[in-house]
Design a binder for these strands. Sequence first.
RNA 1: GCCGAUGUAGCUCAGGGGUAGAGCAACUGAUUCGUAAUCAGUAGGUCGUCGGUUCAAAUCCGACCCUCGGCUCCA
Length: 650
Amino acid sequence: MHVLLPDGKQLEFDHAPTALEVAQAIGPRLAQDTLAASVDGQLTDLMTPLSDGATVALITKKNPGDAAPVFRHTLAHVMSQAVGELYERKGYPKGSVKRGVGPAIDNGWYQDFDLPEPLREEDFPEIEQIMRDIISRNLEMQRRQVSKAQALEQFAADPYKVELISEFPEDEIITFYQQGDYIDLCRGPHFPTTGRLPGAFKLMSTSGAYWRGSDNNPILQRVYGVAFATQKELDEYLHTLEEAKRRDHRKLGKELELFTIDPLVGKGLPMWLPNGTVLREELTNFMKEQQFRRNYSPVVTPNIGHLDLYRTSGHYQNYADSNFSPITVDDEEYMLKPMNCPHHMRIYASKPRSYRDLPLRLAEFGTVYRYEQSGELNGLTRVRGFTQDDAHIFCRPDQLKSEFLDVLDLTVLVLKTFGMNEVRFRVGTRDPNNAKYVGEDAYWEMAEGQIIEAVTEVGLPYSVEPGDAAFYGPKLDFVVKDVLGREWQLGTIQVDPNLPERFDLTYTGEDGQDHRPIVIHRAPFGSIERFTGILIEHYAGDFPLWLAPRQIMIIPIADRHNDYAETLRGELHALGLRAEVDDSSNRMQAKIRDAELHKIPVMLIVGDKEQESHEVSLRERTEEGTKERKGVKFDDLKNELLVRYRTRMP
RNA sequence: GCCGAUGUAGCUCAGGGGUAGAGCAACUGAUUCGUAAUCAGUAGGUCGUCGGUUCAAAUCCGACCCUCGGCUCCA
């Protein structure tokens, strides 16, 4: 038996060694400082026997962050043990705490419990204290392997573990880990001792979670924790959470008076306030301009449709759970529209189409209504009524790729315009083993191939995710990462031969025969509500000039400058710029503070000097901070602002 | 929908069985000031809703609603 070290050195053993034994063979000091190992690139612990010829890189106290998933996992066990001890302190007999799963996740871990009485967040400090105590006991994490029968006996008192073990194959060797008197079924890996665990952890929250993720199962109590190799990283993470709170679009939406959600109107039904509407209209104008250039044809369709329309499209049957219930009028049934496509299909069908008419690009800012579960509703990002920047491109198979390329081009322009630089494209293809996908193999191969060709041609980074396609065709989603590293799914492009089929859409080809068009569904913003929510957080409310609902605040230093300020406001307004005068009796400093708090990007300060020479003093909020320019000719500034606005520069 | 937490003035929050509090915002008056808070005064609340306990409920109990954190779902 031998193992390889990263420097190419080879170590011989007369048995399958663990990574700890490898470390000991190199030196006892190293063995003490080793936390985990990377074996053939896979994170492993020190207690697991290695296979012959494996390459072993030891992770030591020098860079403990490399072993983060391992110590997070071990901390889940330590917390699990601590919770057991807490309930003993509360007077419950040993074994009354039952456990679900407890994996490491991004930034930390969670552990599910079935508890005799719910855990409260007030209990966190005590649990953390017990955890620190367990760490200071420096318990050894022992790895044990038993047969399935022995495991069933070992965990007989814990129904959740029994359920998991029962599903293993009969001959499976079952691994569990033990520290002190705490034993848990677990695949590992773990730190060798609790004493080597970092102290930079914190219990964050508790919530309910269904056993094995199914709402038919009992609900367990899940406790979340975060952990890092160093206190500094933990502090940074907590700071990021604070930053996320500061950027929260629900908070900023209220402060900047962008939108409101009123229970009397209905939950999940946001109303756009004047400031928010200005922002929304800037977004839709941008998209309208682009669609005009790309020869889209705008259409408008009603907010409800006959139930037969959705029976034909399949939306009524396939998405019954998330539609609003039908409305009966004069013995006919109607439904709030959950998608715009069925209406657009009927517009296509409203007259005979020739191959010369294609591609036909029907675009609509269409408002749709979907019944989202109440617990899902969230500000603007998850709502029951929203508007899509929707379009359906009806094309011939030979036009598919060029149309797809044009949609991709538009998408990339959108991302660039809003400074969303970290973006990921996800090509959802069919899972060949899943029967839900309709249509012929030849079609799928053609459509999937064309999408991947188009994405490659544009030179975008993409991943292919089998099984992620819609049941009728492949799709392309774009996912952006924000400044805080959170991912948001924006728009989507889907290729669909199914709806033209269901609606029996045809065009007359060159050959005089009827042919079936293909439809591309696309929505670069996706939902305008959701996109706006993401934009608010992306800019932290500091919108670029063209998007800022309140662009310019003119600040007269004293009342005698109000008339001059009002003249300037009128001139700016005549150019289409959004300018206001703060003619309150506040001091200039207070007016500036007020404009700052409202995140108004441009402040024009005018006093005696400016009034005499038809100038302004400029104070701007920029990404780099406050920028001041004094003695600026107003006529020059007017032009500058107008150009910036029209060209959508920051 | 499920689990848990929360709900006091427009906003941020204090109070906790016996007359409802502060700061900011609003309004009125004074002040006219050079790059993030001028001073004084006035007004503002069915303490989420409904019910119960009590001589007395914003406070204790119950149900419901909204919101928040998760779970599940997302054409």
